[in-house]
């Protein structure tokens, strides 16, 4: 089983190739959308590369549970409600959602995923 450092290194290489960013930009704290400029189609590319690199299967909704954002039971006035946040935390245990939870605007959801979150997600899949 690869160490977290090895997983980080592979994810770093993946993001450099998929997003055309420099290696030193891919830090643990960097967010994929805001800092590294990932667009929606890039996530498909990244997921495909990670599946090949780690020989795992990554259902898209596991890494990006966007269905929560379109579920009327979880959204009020463009923000996730308590139940929505609870569901998001349950579905994304690898992500640090504290900052997002302070003002859970749907439009900010794309900005929450960091490189560190991806490392923890992959670590949970290869464990």
């Amino acid at each position: 089983m690869p160490s977290e450092e090895e997983i980080f290194k592979t994810i770093q290489e993946t993001l450099v190739e998929a997003l055309g960013v420099d290696e030193d930009e891919v830090t643990e704290d960097a967010t994929l959308v805001a800092d590294l400029g990932a667009e929606s189609i890039d996530f498909l590319d990244i997921v495909f590369r990670l599946e090949k690199a780690f020989d795992i299967k990554i259902p898209r909704e596991e890494l990006f549970p966007q269905d929560i954002l379109t579920n009327a039971a979880y959204v009020e006035d463009g923000k996730l409600n308590e139940a929505g946040l609870a569901e998001l935390k349950k579905r994304m245990p690898f992500a640090d959602l504290d900052k997002f939870a302070e003002n859970p605007k749907i439009q900010e959801f794309g900005n929450i995923l960091t490189v560190g979150d991806m490392v923890r997600f992959v670590a949970s899949k290869v464990a």
């Binding site: 929606s40 189609i41 498909l44 495909f48 898209r60």
Partner: peptide, 10 residues
């Protein structure tokens, strides 16, 4: 085609 899902293909 390497991969097909509902969002796109590689």
């Amino acid at each position: 085609v390497e991969r097909i899902d509902e969002n796109g293909t590689v």
